[in-house]
Computed example of a mutant assay.
Amino acid sequence: MKTPINRLDTAIKKLYIAFNNNTLHPECCKQCAVGNILDHSDAWKHFSDEHGSTTLNYVGRVNEAFGKRFNGYTPSELLFIEKTFLQACGYQLPLDFKNKKPENPTDKDVLFNGLQAVIELLCKLDNSPDVMDYTKLFENLKTKTCQPKLTHL
């Protein structure tokens, strides 16, 4: 029996591919974090009246009430993912031409900040350890001390 692919793994893979293929763009509903998770669909944008808001509108509430999931995520989870991505990229929310935004929204550092925040959130949503947490790599170094070998002459 083939096991279903985990939504976390699928979402991370899609975001990783988008980041590396330069198809991750915070201001495009089909290329943002959620747009990429939903296979370049912009249907999710109809769940809220403002881009970057986590308040579900009528369409969002109906979909949520019926238990509808989009690639494994509820409408409220999708809005929270998008909010997290935009904030980590440096946007003032809700997204509006008057509000603060990054000078270059497709700068790799800006996108990496957004990507890192979204992956951390996705891991929390699935009660999984943060795959972007690099501190574990250095824990062994903290516990092991370098002791130089002294030789007597």
Rank of each mutant, 00 (worst) to 15 (best):
K101P: 00
K124L: 05
L153S: 10
E50A: 10
F85Q: 10
P75M: 07
I119T: 11
L137Q: 01
T84E: 02
K100I: 14
M1D: 06
H152I: 10
E50F: 08
Q147N: 11
G35H: 09
F112T: 11
K100D: 11
R7I: 15
N20R: 08
Q116A: 14
H25T: 15
H46G: 07
E50K: 11
V110T: 15
G35D: 09
L121S: 09
T10I: 05
D109E: 09
E50D: 05
L121N: 05
Q87N: 13
L95E: 04
R69L: 13
M1L: 11
R7T: 14
L121K: 15
E77P: 06
P102I: 08
L122H: 12
D39P: 01
C146S: 03
L78R: 04
K2P: 07
K101I: 04
P4L: 11
D39H: 09
D9L: 12
I37P: 04
Y16W: 01
A11H: 03
N99Y: 03
Y58V: 08
I5H: 01
E64F: 10
S41P: 00
H51A: 03
E139G: 03
S41V: 08
S128M: 06
S128H: 13
L122C: 15
Y73R: 14
M132R: 14
I37D: 00
T23P: 01
L153F: 09
M132S: 12
C89R: 05
E103Y: 00
N63M: 14
Q31C: 03
V131T: 13
T143E: 09
K142Q: 09
A11E: 02
H40R: 14
A33T: 07
S41E: 08
N104R: 01
L141W: 04
F85E: 12
T84S: 13
S48D: 02
C89Q: 11
G52M: 12
T23H: 08
K30F: 00
C89P: 09
C28P: 00
P102Y: 07
Q116K: 14
L125A: 05
K83S: 12
I12Q: 10
K83I: 04
T54M: 05
P94G: 11
G52W: 06
L111D: 07
V110R: 06
M1H: 07
H152G: 03
C28R: 04
M132N: 10
L141E: 06
D39R: 11
I12E: 14
K136T: 12
S41M: 06
I12H: 01
N63V: 03
N71F: 11
H25G: 06
N36K: 07
Q87E: 15
Q92K: 02
E27P: 02
Y91V: 05
V59I: 11
L150V: 12
T106W: 02
Q31V: 01
D96Y: 02
L24R: 13
A43N: 13
T145S: 07
W44S: 08
H46Y: 04
E82W: 02
L153K: 09
P102K: 08
E139D: 13
G60C: 03
N6C: 13
R61L: 10
F19P: 01
W44G: 02
M132I: 14
N113Y: 02
T10Y: 02
L38N: 06
V131W: 02
L115M: 15
V34T: 04
